[in-house]
């Protein structure tokens, strides 16, 4: 119960694609209790999941922190209700958007409460998929410190691998407990396959998925079609399906 899978990586390497298709794969495998968290202010998981949201935590943080409540009302319970209120509920999964990070105000107390609320919320779902930025700020400060699996996505660029290696270090630095950490290789070109494997080895991480360059994904991106709608028999979705079906870490 309550498995948390976080997906991280340099911006633009396909984190949101992986997060989206993981959610999709779970829904197709009869998992009913799924929470998707968009913890990357620069991505748009909602769009990619073909849903809309009204408000993010960032939008209501000020109110959560500063609103004067009657003295007999507990702030944490109030927060809990508000978070529930902005959680998007679709037929197949729920979505929570963290939104922009806080402004100059003080949010230690609120962030602390948020983290404990989200931590216990994730326990109520069978799976929580967190799309998080490379800096892991959002994850550690406002979401959760405990993830079961961390998938670090990289494309075949040097920078992608560098960032992947840095994220591995950050996990320790930021005190995030990740039981398992894997690399996900995205946008591999057939001819580079061997070199990429070498690069991957250097990071010291096992590879959980290998996804080849897929013109269809490019097309969806360009035309703004939600990635969750990728056909079942698309190369990318099949790659994820294969990886997940044989994944021991699930």
């Amino acid at each position: 119960m309550g498995k948390v899978i976080a997906i991280s990586g340099k911006g633009g390497v396909g984190k949101t694609l992986i997060s989206t298709l993981l959610v999709r794969w779970l829904t197709e495998n009869n998992i009913k209790n799924i929470l998707a968290i968009d913890a990357d202010p620069d991505s748009n998981l909602a769009e990619s999941l073909d849903t809309e949201y009204d408000k993010s935590i960032g939008d209501i943080r000020e109110e959560l922190s500063c609103k004067s409540l009657p003295p007999g009302v507990e702030r944490k319970k109030y927060l809990e209700g508000k978070i529930f209120e902005i959680t998007v509920e679709t037929d197949k999964f729920d979505l929570l958007v963290m939104g922009r990070p806080e402004g100059p105000g003080c949010y230690c107390a609120v962030n602390h409460m948020l983290r404990s609320i989200i931590d216990s919320t994730t326990k109520a779902y069978e799976y929580t998929i967190v799309d998080t930025e490379a800096g892991l700020e959002h994850l550690s400060r406002r979401t959760t410190e405990n993830v079961d699996v961390m998938l670090i996505v990289t494309d075949t660029s040097r920078k992608g691998f560098k960032t992947a290696a840095r994220i591995k270090g950050l996990l320790q630095e930021m005190n995030i407990k990740a039981n398992k950490i894997f690399l996900v290789l995205n946008r591999i070109k057939e001819e580079d396959k061997e070199i990429i494997k070498e690069e991957a080895k250097l990071t010291g991480l096992d590879v959980a998925m290998e996804i080849f360059e897929d013109p269809l994904v490019r097309k969806y991106d360009l035309e703004g079609i939600p990635l969750i709608k990728l056909p079942r028999d698309s190369e990318t979705y099949k790659a994820i399906e294969n990886a997940m079906e044989s994944a021991e870490w699930m």
Binding site: S65, S68, P71, E74, K76, C106, A109
Partner: peptide, 23 residues
């Protein structure tokens, strides 16, 4: 009330009760 204004005496009391090792 606390400096940040987010924690009243009652809030702190409730928090201390549910999470005795917390802040």
């Amino acid at each position: 009330i606390s400096l940040c204004g987010s924690i009243s005496w009652l809030d702190a009391r409730a928090a201390a009760k549910v999470d005795p090792d917390g802040p």
